[in-house]
Simulated scan of single mutants.
Amino acid sequence: MSASFSLALNAAREAAASQHYPQGALYVVATPIGNLADISLRALHLLQLADAVACEDTRHTQALLRAYGIDKTAAQLMAVHQHNEAEAAQAVIERLRQGQRVAYASDAGTPAVSDPGARLVSAVREAGLRVVPMPGASSVTAALSVAGAMGDDGAFVFAGFLPAKAMEREAAVGALAQEVRAVVLLEAPHRIEALARALAALGARAITVGRELTKQFEEVATVPCAQLPAWLAADPQRTRGEFALVLHAAPEAPQGDEGLRVLALLLKELPVKSAVKLAAEITGAPRNELYEAALKIKGMDAPGSESGAGSSSPA
């Protein structure tokens, strides 16, 4: 433990020790996604206070705790990962029923967000026991905060890891093409190139890549989806590390452009007046503007001109 974390432990006790930490509760603890300093004072205090620490990887968590100067015995560390989560949850519940405080930490970031923990939390709640959040680091919110990717409504979708199989991944990307909100994706280094090739189908839509967020070689870049494979290939280092990507919200098409697009399609099948009427109803674009555009598309003269004296604008 460095001297700085010794001071942090003291600060944690000063800031958080007077707060209430009920017994018989599961504490869901967010841990750093890379930078060890991204740990909250409450989390540090709770990890010292906890009777047991359930974790995705006991060796990883033991090393993390020791870096902060927190000592837990092997008996106090419980392995709860994706392969044993349902069974291990029962062991956690037994400790909680004994009045113990149990902290749960995945390897990095906030548990249960594309990490183990969701089934554990569900089992604890179903047992009628309390679950307490200890918020902190998250690659999802870290990527969103620097992407500038959300629309005016501030909405986004968390998609996490797309399917590993090529056909399923391409189908998922096809669905993303219809999603107008910002979308957060996660990916591992050995699959990032395959994901980039699939996302290239989204063309000019912008995507922000967050690589190795909070770490020494952190990199954040925004490129059109079509250029993502080339961006990765430009530097061998860019395929290394963990990735959080934000597909930007789809830009709203100007109403006039949408009206003209719909109008052009309808004119292929319908007379001018019918096409104009339907295009106006579908898009809300002004009917008179659509009528004038339709005449130009059809190569007809506007009403009132010498050759078009017999024409009339739509009602």
Rank of each mutant, 00 (worst) to 15 (best):
Q98P: 01
G99V: 10
K72M: 06
N84C: 15
R97S: 09
H83G: 15
I70W: 05
V102E: 00
G117C: 14
A108V: 07
E94W: 09
P111E: 06
L77S: 12
V102H: 02
G99A: 11
L96M: 14
T110E: 05
K72S: 08
A86F: 08
M78K: 08
P111W: 01
E94N: 11
Y104L: 09
E94K: 14
R101L: 14
A74N: 14
R97L: 06
Q82Y: 03
I93T: 11
R119E: 09
A74L: 11
A67R: 15
R95V: 06
D115F: 06
H81C: 13
A112T: 15
H81S: 04
H83Y: 11
L77R: 10
A74S: 12
R101Y: 12
V102F: 05
V92K: 00
Y104G: 04
V92D: 03
H81M: 12
A67Y: 00
H81N: 12
G99M: 08
V102G: 07
A79Q: 10
R95W: 04
R101A: 13
P116L: 11
A88T: 03
S114E: 04
E94D: 13
A105G: 02
T73F: 06
L96S: 14
A74T: 11
G109V: 07
I93G: 14
Q90R: 13
D115W: 08
V92E: 00
A112I: 15
R101Q: 14
A75F: 05
Q100D: 12
I93F: 15
D115I: 06
A86Q: 12
A79H: 15
Q98S: 06
A91E: 08
R95A: 04
R95N: 03
T110R: 02
L96P: 14
A91W: 01
A105Q: 13
G69V: 07
A74M: 12
G99L: 05
A79P: 09
A89Y: 00
I70C: 06
A79M: 07
A86C: 13
I70Y: 03
Y104H: 04
S114K: 10
